[in-house]
Design a protein around this nucleic acid. Structure first.
Length: 414
RNA sequence: GCGGGUGUAGCUCAGUUGGUUAGAGCACCAGAUUGUGGAUCUGGGGGCCGUGGGUUCGCAUCCCAUCACUCGCCCCA
């Protein structure tokens, strides 16, 4: 161990951030539930081939970002870099394919060996939704509209933009890919070094290059739209008009492509400019070929993933933790009675903070610091008469209450 | 993986051309106030100046390396 610090790109999530992240996750879960999604959770590691086969041998994730190791039994294991492959595997290996359509919500940690920066971590957390077994555009529309609803609820929809494109089915994409290779091969010398490499490995990635020279060439490159076959093009149109019906705003971006091989047809990203180099807060698309790659029957599917840390950084209106009741025992002989009262109140659903030490001044200071709503004084004085002194810490007003009237009084506070 | 910037107290930051014991505000602790918080006043604790090496009589300060963060590329959530 070099020094006592977390591994590069990992962080301890302290309570303040934890609260925000939990809010993101719970908001997403609640809304996903309304759309009829059921929560699923799959292991955070899988056999390496689960990702290798499905994400594509040439994708960046597979070639240089996976946390892969051999376990003690000699199996090749990989910490999941994304959720979809694991869920697809669960559907195939659990025989869930008989119960289509399936709608899943999931969340949890992901791992990618990347260079960390703002909004980019080696262990990060995602929320994830998938609709499996629906070829109809309604699934695309529903999944996107769920994403928009979640962003809206988090107060970040206004600072994001939905970009959308269609990659078409396999036939359309192959035809387009050929056309792109032909076009860019002619202009090869005008391409950046990186894009010349992309031309060999993943020509569609040239489309979203940020290099000035590349962009000039890209602007005149063949357009995906012109290569969509009738079926692909009809699906895309249906998705867009569905979004129009629901009032979900979007911008067609013909240069939006995907890093992972399994995507087809609809591809979309909710992007923001407020996170530096990291644009996407939610990204996803259709992956009709994935289940088959996994060894299951051909099964259409669509889904997206959202970055919890990124969303938490943007979210507004995160609710505060509930304000506790500070219980202040006065004198040494009332400790037991105070513990008992604290437990009774907790059983009734109240959040109670029982200071552990110090005189009354000190405990009151603590009560103030933790944002307590009220303080309850319990001393010999009160104990003898079966009452409690309740001090409202906002107004400063104080009153004595019979023990059996206490909970009613506390409930009326809010 | 490539290039730039920044690392001084828990936090935000000062710190002179290299010179004695490294400072401030906030936060924290104690007291004024041992049955009453916030405000105020008084006092206090806290720093291998990110880490390692080098230069120097002497570095927080100059040089090199390294680690972390950060910005861009790459990639994406």
């Amino acid at each position: 161990m070099r020094r006592l610090q977390p591994v590069r790109g990992t962080h301890d999530i302290l309570p303040e951030d934890g609260l925000k992240q939990r809010h993101v996750m719970e908001t997403a879960r609640k809304l996903a539930e309304r759309y009829g999604f059921a929560e699923i959770s799959t292991p955070i590691f899988e056999f390496t081939e689960v990702f290798q086969r499905t994400l594509g041998e040439t994708s960046d994730v597979v070639t240089k970002e996976m946390y892969t190791f051999k376990d003690r039994g000699g199996d090749e294991i990989t910490l999941r870099p994304e959720y979809t492959a694991g869920i697809a595997r669960a559907v195939v290996s659990g025989g869930l394919g008989r119960q289509l359509p399936l709608r899943f919500f999931a969340h949890g940690p992901m791992f990618r060996y990347e260079r960390p920066q703002r909004g980019r971590l080696r262990q990060f957390h995602q929320i994830d939704v998938e609709i499996i077994g629906v070829a109809e555009p309604q699934a695309d529309i529903e999944v996107i509209s769920l994403g928009a609803d979640i962003l809206e609820a988090l107060g970040v929809l206004g600072s994001t933009e939905l970009e959308i494109n269609s990659l078409g089915d396999a036939e359309s994409r192959l035809a387009y890919r050929d056309a792109l290779v032909t076009y860019f091969s002619v202009h090869r010398d005008g391409l950046s070094a990186e894009s010349q490499e992309r031309l060999k490995r993943n020509p569609m990635r040239i489309l979203d290059s940020k290099d000035e020279g590349d962009r000039v060439l890209v602007a005149k490159a063949p357009r995906m739209e012109d290569f969509l076959n009738e079926e692909s093009s009809a699906l895309f149109d249906a998705v867009l008009s569905g979004l129009d019906v629901l009032g979900v705003r979007y911008r067609k971006n013909p240069h939006l492509v995907r890093g992972l091989d399994y995507y087809s047809h609809t591809a979309f990203e909710f992007v923001t400019r407020e996170l530096g180099a990291q644009g996407a807060v939610i990204a996803g698309g259709r992956y009709d070929g994935l289940m088959e790659t996994m060894g299951g029957p051909p099964t259409p599917a669509i889904g997206w993933a959202g970055g919890i840390e990124r969303l938490a950084m943007l979210a507004v209106g995160v609710p505060d933790a509930p304000r506790p009741i500070a219980l202040v025992p006065v004198g040494d002989d009332v400790q037991d009675a105070a513990m008992q009262l604290a437990r009774d109140l907790r059983h009734s659903g109240f959040v109670v903070d029982l200071g552990y030490r110090g005189n009354v001044t000190r405990r009151m200071r603590r009560a103030d610091r933790i944002g307590a709503r009220v303080a309850l004084f319990l001393g010999e004085n009160e104990l003898e008469r079966d009452v409690v002194t309740l001090r409202d810490l906002d107004s400063g007003r104080q009153q004595e209450l019979a023990r059996n009237a206490l909970e009613t009084a506390l409930k009326s506070l809010e």
